[in-house]
């Protein structure tokens, strides 16, 4: 592997690790900042994705919409408290097209409620388009396609 590829691999893995840490540490205000201004976050059931059905569980088309989601998480959506733990595989860097890095990774997110056992909250695959900005790598698209056929009641925090 060329040095250039190794460096890119390292950068993408660092981006993934920083993203997971922000969510697991509930630094939700930091979450939209991982995206460019008109970036898109989409969390979609595998069934819909595989069959070409457009519906997503969460489909946010700008950093503004992501901020609105954060307000929902922290201020308006009533839910029992819990915390999450992301386990993300090393990135599979698929290629670079112009200024866009295409990459994907597997993820498992566990949920733990107070006095509860840890449960599998959501399992799937990140499918990403990443661009280089003056502030570092940011997502232009993060599509999370989840295998989990049933959401465990509700899904409040993004994965």
């Amino acid at each position: 592997m060329s040095l250039e590829k190794l460096l890119l691999q390292q950068e993408v893995d660092q981006l993934y690790a920083a993203y997971a840490a922000a969510l697991d540490e509930k630094r939700f205000d930091a979450w939209p900042e991982f995206f460019v201004e008109d970036g898109r976050y989409s969390l979609q059931a595998r069934e819909n994705h595989d069959r070409g059905l457009p519906l997503a569980l969460m489909d946010l088309e700008s950093r503004g919409m992501m901020k609105d989601r954060v307000y929902g998480i922290t201020q308006t959506i009533y839910h029992g408290p819990y915390y999450t733990r992301h386990v993300v595989s090393p990135a599979q860097v698929l290629g670079v097209e112009g200024d866009v890095v295409k990459a994907q990774a597997n993820y498992a997110v566990f949920r733990t409620k107070p006095a509860g056992i840890s449960e599998v909250y959501n399992v799937g695959r990140y499918i990403d388009e990443i661009v280089r900005t003056p502030e570092g790598l940011k997502f232009r698209l993060r599509l999370c396609v989840y295998d989990s056929e049933m959401i465990l009641n509700s899904l409040i925090y993004p994965v």
Partner: peptide, 28 residues
Amino acid sequence: MTRRRLRQANLFGPAGFVSADDGEVIEF
């Protein structure tokens, strides 16, 4: 209109701005 319906779907369903709380209060 299709995009609008998909966008408003963010309000409803298991992660919805509105209906996620319904499942939660049913559990409680």
